[in-house]
């Protein structure tokens, strides 16, 4: 594996080496945690106390304050994972692969949360736990894509190959995500699916939007914190010498 030449690389690239990244991540994590907790508590306050009752969906609509940010991040984290995977393939940088590996579980977790909360919203609104609605179906397929990524990584013993192969899969998946989303929407209109949607844009009050955004930024900081913690674990697991140094032994 070729290493980045320090002479020709730009200064910020030094953070692309696991050795310098490890302590930097350690410094960032507490701030992210504090920010995440603060914003999520504030978001909960807006969502549960400030936001008015929806005239159509009653109090049941309050599920959107967790569902919508989770759904956003399930997709955003997949794309971010693919971006790091692509960066890894182009630069052949180990840290990029580790980032991609570290992002996947959090993305899958948010996908699962979006599915379960969507289903909890669907039961009172649609009268069924599951409706083949375009958004829910896309989330389900996204979960399958994450499962494929994990399965491929688990099946390959050689770490180097696992990194690269799953990176290719992540990129292929990322190209497919918009196509899948479009095809599912098209399929839904062909078969005239449910007309009520989880996000009704016109009726959305500004407070509701604000609550969702605050929550989303809180989830974002949470994701960063968790991903950084996981990257640190990856770094330690892959290199026992670095692990001893970083743990002060």
């Amino acid at each position: 594996m070729k290493n980045l030449d320090t002479k020709t690389s730009i200064n910020w690239l030094k953070y692309a080496s696991p050795k310098t990244f490890y302590p930097l991540a350690g410094k960032l994590i507490p701030w992210c945690v504090i920010g995440a907790v603060g914003l999520i508590v504030y978001g909960l306050y807006i969502g549960l106390f400030v936001a008015p009752t929806d005239f159509q969906q009653g109090e049941g609509y309050r599920i959107i304050f967790v569902h919508v940010p989770a759904a956003w991040f399930s997709m955003f984290l997949y794309l971010l994972m693919a971006m790091y995977a692509g960066l890894g393939l182009v630069l052949n940088a180990r840290l990029s692969y580790m980032m991609a590996t570290a992002i996947a579980p959090t993305g899958a977790m948010f996908t699962l949360v979006a599915l379960v909360t969507g289903s909890l919203w669907g039961k009172p609104m649609w009268g069924a736990w599951w409706v083949w609605d375009a958004r829910l179906t896309s989330e389900l397929i996204l979960l399958f894509l994450y499962i494929g990524y994990f399965s491929l990584q688990a099946a390959i013993d050689d770490k180097n190959r696992a990194d690269k192969a799953s990176a290719v899969l992540a990129l292929v998946g990322a190209i497919n995500v918009p196509i899948i989303y479009f095809s599912v929407k098209w399929w839904n209109t062909l078969h005239q699916g449910a007309s009520v949607s989880l996000m009704k844009a016109p009726a959305m009050a500004t407070v509701m939007l604000k609550g969702m955004l605050v929550m989303a930024i809180g989830f974002w900081l949470y994701s960063i914190a968790v991903i950084l913690i996981r990257v640190r674990c990856e770094i330690l697991e892959r290199d026992s010498k670095a692990a001893m140094f970083n743990l002060g032994l």
């Binding site: 397929i141 399958f144 894509l145 499962i147 494929g148 497919n176 196509i179 899948i180 479009f182 095809s183």
Partner: peptide, 10 residues
């Protein structure tokens, strides 16, 4: 099957 089936959906 796990890798390819989701990609087959469109």
């Amino acid at each position: 099957a796990i890798l390819v089936l989701p990609l087959y959906i469109p």
